[in-house]
Simulated assay, not measured.
Amino acid sequence: MIDRFRVGVITSSHGIKGEAKVYPTSDDSNRLKKIKKVYADIKGVETVLDIETVRFQKNMALVKFKQFNTPEEIQALRNTDLFVDRDNATPLKKNENYIADLIGLDVTDEDGIILGKVTDVFPTGANHVMEVDMGEKKVLFPYISQCILDVNLEEGKIRVHVLDGLLDL
């Protein structure tokens, strides 16, 4: 399991006071308002950034970090990923997992036969979808209780029910 989760990416500077435009990568963009510090890899050095303020404009967060006060300082951070510790991540509900913990897990059917590995999990309109690399093809499994039977992080496996027609493509 990973220790840190990406919560955003700095895309550019905003205004003259050194605010950063941050594209939120978390499923709850308002979460940025609750975070006091983030981690960033700045020129190969892991750096703690203290968040002073967060406000939103359309789909972007405008973040003011205590360490930076000019647009030029922020512009130098373009495309920098922002991370939080697992301890500061959004708390999970019962039977929930962090997407980052699912990537790379083996996927087995109900009989224990390995189908492939999880390469991505992403939201759709109704539910999340899990992409599984099966070697010669990638298959999308709906991340719903009828399909995902068990997630065992300790064993590194997800047991699935293969819905009718799912593997026919």
Results as ranks from 00 to 15, higher is better:
Met1Lys: 12
Arg4Gly: 04
Phe5Asn: 01
Arg6Lys: 14
Val7Arg: 01
Gly8Gln: 12
Gly8Thr: 15
Val9Cys: 13
Ser13Gln: 05
Gly15Ser: 05
Gly18Trp: 01
Gly18Arg: 03
Lys21Asp: 06
Tyr23Pro: 00
Pro24Leu: 11
Ser26Lys: 08
Ser26Ile: 15
Asp27His: 14
Asp28Leu: 14
Ser29Tyr: 15
Asn30Cys: 13
Asn30Phe: 08
Lys33Gly: 02
Lys37Asp: 01
Tyr39Leu: 09
Ile42His: 08
Ile42Met: 07
Lys43Asn: 06
Lys43Val: 00
Gly44Ile: 04
Gly44His: 04
Gly44Pro: 02
Glu46Val: 09
Thr47Met: 01
Thr47Phe: 03
Thr47Asp: 05
Val48His: 02
Val48Gly: 01
Leu49Phe: 06
Asp50Pro: 02
Thr53Leu: 03
Arg55Cys: 02
Gln57Tyr: 10
Asn59Ile: 15
Met60Val: 02
Met60His: 07
Met60Thr: 03
Ala61Leu: 04
Val63Ile: 15
Gln67Gly: 07
Asn69Val: 00
Pro71Ile: 00
Glu72Ser: 04
Glu72Lys: 14
Glu72Phe: 04
Glu72His: 03
Glu73Cys: 03
Glu73Phe: 07
Gln75Thr: 03
Ala76Arg: 06
Ala76Leu: 02
Asn79Ala: 06
Thr80Glu: 08
Asp81Ala: 14
Arg86His: 10
Arg86Glu: 05
Arg86Ala: 03
Asn88Asp: 05
Ala89Pro: 05
Pro91Arg: 12
Pro91Ala: 08
Lys93Pro: 00
Lys94Asn: 08
Glu96Pro: 07
Asn97Ile: 12
Tyr98Cys: 12
Tyr98Asn: 09
Tyr98Leu: 07
Ile99Ser: 03
Ile99Lys: 10
Leu102Ala: 06
Gly104Pro: 06
Val107Ala: 01
Val107Asn: 01
Asp111Arg: 13
Gly112Ile: 08
Ile114Thr: 08
Ile114Arg: 14
Leu115Ser: 04
Thr119Gln: 13
Val121Gly: 14
Phe122Leu: 14
Ala126Ser: 15
His128Gly: 10
Val129Cys: 09
Val132Ala: 09
Asp133Ile: 07
Glu136Thr: 12
Leu140Ser: 11
Phe141Leu: 10
Phe141Lys: 13
Pro142Ala: 09
Cys147Ile: 09
Ile148Asn: 02
Leu149Tyr: 11
Leu149Gln: 12
Asp150Trp: 11
Leu153His: 08
Glu154Val: 12
Glu155Asp: 14
Gly156Ile: 11
Lys157Asp: 09
Ile158Leu: 11
Val160Ala: 08
His161Ser: 12
Leu163Asn: 12
Leu163Thr: 07
Asp164Tyr: 05
Leu167Thr: 05
Asp168Ser: 09
Leu169Val: 07
